[in-house]
Nucleic acid binder design. Structure first.
Lengths: 341, 341
DNA sequence: AAAATCAACGAAAACGTTTTTCCTAAATAT
DNA sequence: ATATTTAGGAAAAACGTTTTCGTTGATTTT
């Protein structure tokens, strides 16, 4: 805690507290010379305004909250990076909260946020969030709220997302064009819109190319990594093994790599795979992993930008922005066509 | 901002503000029945105490600050994860700041922190920090401060680190035992103690095994990825190419992989490599990467634990904890001995 | 029965800002 | 010369808590 306050500063200057405050905030009521004197003394005495007093009085915290499922995740780490950049430019602080994919944590975090600790909230839902009551109550409290990537479908709110349906479609079509006939889809959660949209793209691509949609090929994964591994193993050891996998999320693709390594299954010869991913090492994997790569950093930047427009009331009345960015499909070895001789 | 405050709550209950406050804080001065009434009404009216008023009055923020070079980094993401876990248990909020390896940012962040926004600070230095003036002033201000991983050598402060010297030594010795005769060292910064300690381990291992320490084999890398790539290229294209690389940091190893891929240099046949890294995909790379893996999550947990002991004044007077955790050396293909026939 | 203790609560000060209102002297207008 | 404006600054009222003292009436102690 900074030890010098306005009172001491005022005493040292022979001025009143209010004048010092106004001088520091560059008010027109204070003469230029006085301002200079004040600023100099403030520096000399190492004055730092008390943020709580200021926040209390102004009802502004200069802080935003970011609520995400996890941080040890390339996508979210990059998104946070973008968010932090914008926040810093605006002179805002960033409070982060991790839900660990657990709705209970999400709800309690939102309740904390309702206390008014932040001027705005950026959020990406956790995988098992169904009810949006906590979210609407946050929104109704008047705190600007923007969702990114994992957004709630049931409520009207500003969002920043990517072209999930199209990406799922293109990824699946790419596998088909590489020769796959039986393509599995690894889904993160049937509650998440991104997971469902990606899966819908997958299904429509199958239909377009006359391939059947088999329920057994759609694997709903959990938050338990071990259990996911067993699901993937079961999928790949089954009688009618898929020859292609569309993974809606990075960590599931990594699990597939581990399983195939253990089983001695060859990618892309026996199994092709493409996955949503922000791995920097995708091209260095054995084999290199074909990816749909979301512009994670930009998503963070745009979401934060939107939030600050709301905080600064630059957005008119009831306008609700829905921004969609494009992901990039990057073909690598893991989905390469094998030309039989 | 929550709309109901103590005053309104008190009015609704027909009690005084102070009694309501005391009831909510479970003071012995208030009867059990009254407490129950108050708590019920508080829930009904959705009362959330104003955090700024509370912080202002109590001179406690229930918040810690975390200052790190970057977040899109496996090590730091994991460390943050550990920190957040402990903070949540303690009911604390976490404010994160990124310096982007830039000392100017570090200094200005510290100045912000001096304002008293947080009750404690966890920090990992940026690569070009030389002077520790800003750090000592933060420490002298009385805010508990714990460094992790990248710690300042010139000042006396609590730290959580790993066995960097030993790890550098073991990694280098491992390369030697795999048959390397000319081992290069990729250093992140000659200002960072971790980088230097790892390098000292490297040099001592060379000496122990009668290998010369060549300045040309010690590459001081920068914060510019492109430039680092050119440095690595120059190293590997030189007349007397090294046959082994000890990388003190993950991203430089990744750069080496890119360069060798481009050059068609074969790992581990023509070049062996081992690197500090927390890559989850290390074993899936082509070839799998031998790593020294730091217990990043635990580092976060321990550093936060230490910080909270200081915040809660559980640590006696001038005691200064220096905790050292062990890293694990994991041998994989990238440093495998090639047995000539 | 008087004095002391006690339980349960209220009044008010304090935390350090920001901001509105008010004051005083000098400058300008009438 | 008097009235009015205008700088430049001071006083004081918030902001919503927490906490230190009182203040009661009731109970216990002596």
């Amino acid at each position: 805690m900074s030890n010098t306050n306005l009172k001491q500063l005022a005493a040292a200057l022979g001025l009143s507290i209010s004048s010092v405050s106004k001088a520091l905030r560059d008010s027109y009521e204070i003469s230029a010379e006085t301002k200079k004197r004040v600023v100099e003394m403030a520096n000399r005495m190492n004055y730092q305004p008390n943020p709580f007093a200021s926040s209390l009085r102004r009802k502004k915290s200069a802080t935003i909250g970011v609520v995400i499922p996890e941080i040890a995740n390339n996508f979210f780490a990059l998104a946070i990076d973008g968010i932090q950049m914008v926040a810093e430019q605006k002179g805002f602080h960033v409070l982060t909260y991790l839900t660990h994919e657990n709705n209970t944590n999400e709800v309690s975090t939102v309740r904390h946020l309702l206390g008014g600790r932040v001027d705005g909230v950026l959020m990406s839902l956790c995988r098992d969030t169904q009810s949006v009551d906590h979210l609407t109550s946050l929104q109704e409290s008047g705190i600007p709220l923007v969702f990114f990537d994992r957004v709630p479908e049931q409520m009207s709110c500003p969002t920043v997302t990517t072209d999930d349906y199209e990406s799922g479609f293109r990824a699946t079509e790419h596998l088909i064009q590489s020769g796959c006939k039986r393509i599995a889809c690894l889904s993160l959660s049937h509650y998440l819109s991104i997971s469902n949209k990606r899966m819908n793209g997958y299904m429509d691509a199958l239909k377009k190319h006359g391939l059947p949609v088999e329920n057994g090929l759609i694997v709903q994964c959990t938050n338990d990594n071990e259990y996911n591994l067993s699901l993937i193993k079961a999928l790949l050891k089954g009688r009618k093994r898929p020859d292609g996998i569309f993974s809606t999320v990075e960590k599931l693709a990594i699990s597939v790599y581990y399983v195939t390594q253990e089983m001695g299954l060859q990618i892309p010869k026996q199994l092709k795979i493409i996955s949503f991913s922000n791995l920097r090492t995708a091209s260095l994997l054995n084999p290199s992993l074909s990816t749909i790569t979301q512009p994670a950093f930009e998503i963070g930047v745009e979401a934060a930008g939107l939030l600050f427009r709301m905080i600064e009331k630059k957005t008119f009345g009831n306008r609700i922005d829905k921004l969609e960015l494009k992901s990039a499909l990057i073909e690598r070895k893991s989905s390469e066509r094998i030309n039989k001789i």
